[in-house]
Design a protein around this nucleic acid. Structure first.
Length: 298
DNA sequence: ATCGTAGCCTGGAGGC
DNA sequence: TGCCTCCAGGCTACGA
């Protein structure tokens, strides 16, 4: 459930604690956590230095260079690579003292040549994973190859509002399904989809092709506003699973208008918030502010 | 090509 | 107390 703001909180932590450090060793404690790399991940990390901490949508990655720089590590063409991470439902990237006891759901640990704090990937439900992947040569912004199909997220400069509006109107599906489609817009998950739809007074089953361009722009503004506010509060956390690299939780859950608030009053009109099943999950909305369209589409 | 869904996974909550 | 079922839901693979 970490969405864009929560992942950005983690990225900022990595930016502060991981850049410039060289991996001494990597230990995999659960194979599923590196399922897209098989057993090669430790060898592909050892001796390489973290250049920066990047994010697109819910993915984050640490571009790597060889230390000392030079031969490309024997990779084809000396291609640039990165350590790519997705937190899934319950993943955490923690900066921890090497002597600290192992977390119950510790999946991967990276130690550094400076002997300082380790980077630990802890993930209860194992929906998340790490992999070392080549960078796709793709302008204007290089991203790891496995996520080349992911669209820009609404908080990055590369996001094109006009293109998003045009592509959304070409879809023949429900609005929330489109918002959750990471190849159309990335970083939006169930929580912020519901919050943004409430702010824009749109029902989740609204057929995408019936939205006007101005309404789509309004929705994008709502998406950006709710994400920016959440980020300012350190992200949303319902329990201790959603934490920054120091294990601390954010406070945005106190600011949610509809998500997880079934039967409680809409902050705008007072009507009781409704919960509906959709796509094997829950959608929360206000029955008065967000009336169900007659031509609703799941 | 596009759209929709099953299945992956664990632990907490609630029913009995 | 303990067993069972449900729920959380991002993403991939696959079928229509």
């Amino acid at each position: 459930m970490p969405e864009l703001p929560e992942v950005e909180v983690v990225r900022r932590g990595l930016e502060r604690w991981a850049i410039g450090r060289t991996v001494a060793s990597a230990e995999v404690l659960h194979p599923r956590a590196v399922r897209r790399n098989d057993g090669s991940l430790p060898d592909r990390l050892k001796g390489r230095t973290v250049v920066s901490a990047e994010r697109r949508g819910k993915y984050l990655w640490l571009p790597l260079h060889d230390d000392p720089p030079g031969d490309g590590g024997g990779r084809p063409g000396g291609a640039e690579e990165a350590l790519l991470a997705h937190l899934g439902m319950s993943g955490q990237l923690l900066i921890v003292d090497p002597l600290a006891p192992m977390e119950k759901h510790l999946r991967v640990r990276l130690s550094f040549t400076d002997g300082g704090p380790e980077l630990r990937f802890v993930d209860q439900r194992t929906f998340g994973h790490l992999l070392v992947a080549p960078m796709a040569v793709r302008l204007p912004r290089p991203v790891p190859e496995p996520i080349a199909h992911i669209a820009a997220d609404p908080l990055e400069g590369a996001f094109d509002d006009e293109e998003f509006a045009a592509r959304l109107r070409l879809r023949r599906t429900g609005l929330k399904r489109a918002l959750l489609d990471q190849s159309l817009i990335s970083g939006v998950g169930n929580i912020y989809a519901d919050e943004a739809l409430w702010r824009a007074r749109l029902h989740w089953a609204r057929p995408t092709e019936t939205l006007t361009r101005p309404k789509i722009v309004e929705l994008l503004s709502a998406v950006r506003a709710v994400m920016t506010e959440a980020l300012a509060q350190g992200g949303t956390s319902f329990d201790s699973l959603y934490v920054n690299v120091n294990g601390e939780s954010g406070y945005f859950d106190r600011s949610l208008a509809v998500y997880g608030r079934q039967d409680r009053p809409c902050p705008r009109c007072g009507a009781p918030i409704r919960r509906e099943a959709f796509m094997n999950r829950s959608s929360y909305s206000c029955p008065k502010c967000q009336p169900r369209p007659r031509n609703a589409r799941p």
